[in-house]
Amino acid sequence: MAPYTMRNTVDRLDKPSTYTANKVEALKNRKRNRNQRDDDREGGREKTPEFQDNLKNATTLYVGNLSFYTTEEQIHELFAKCGEIKRLIMGLDRFQKTPCGFCFVEYYNHQDALDCMKYIGGTKLDERLIRTDLDEGFSEGRQYGRGKSGGQVRDEYRNEFDPGRGGYGKALTEDLDDEKILR
């Protein structure tokens, strides 16, 4: 049985975002359903749901809202304050292979990753508020932006001008270009 833990009197900052938690939850459900089907077929009884999930011992963090110009060294300087860094993977534009505003930081210890959530997430690096989120671990391919333009999706439709992240949203600028052509 999972140990019963009392709720704290204030929220904890070292929890995954709802986005990541949902993703992991969905994955778990899919697995459980599969097991369920197997069990049905075999006529076995329901298995104890597994509480183990990918984030329980996570040592990797997703770091977002970086400036495109922030370097590995800068990230290293800040994030090493929470423990020795095992690996640092810069997020790259799929086509240009240039930094596109996110990265993965991998620590040696789970606790270091949690500390980082608590103490560094939401503080500034290179004068931008950065976002950290627990991550199930880096796998090849995840270093590339998934937007149409090659960068991150969130930079496609941004209305505000952000000099640290390539100006206006990519798709928006394209639309503007299209309009110009039509005229």
């Binding site: 304050k81 929470c82 423990g83 500390d115 608590k118 103490y119 560094i120 503080t123």
Partner: peptide, 12 residues
């Protein structure tokens, strides 16, 4: 007791 960066973040 905690990492120094924690206290930095409290001041911030």
């Amino acid at each position: 007791e905690h990492r120094l960066v924690y206290f930095h973040s409290v001041i911030t």
